[in-house]
Amino acid sequence: MLIDCTKAAEICNKAQYREAGSWKVFKLKIHLMYCPTCRKHAAKNGKLTKLCSKAKLQCMDPEKKKKIKEKIASRS
């Protein structure tokens, strides 16, 4: 039932990507009740997730990246 800080951090990270099961999230919540360090970290972690989604970050098309890499290699 009780988890340590390392496990709590792992569950907290998985929860940011919706990859933590409800039982694990429950155990995390119990841990956060008595661990202020993890509570602070979890709040910041959640904030980071919100900021990332708000920023609507994009990645360049991998094919385009590959072509640019080839061009750079041929001209270096």
Binding site: L57, Q58, C59, M60, K65, I68, K69, I72, A73, S76
Partner: peptide, 15 residues
Amino acid sequence: DPSQWVDRYADYLYN
């Protein structure tokens, strides 16, 4: 190190 430019900076410059 131009060989690393795309991996390191392409997404930053793109955004």
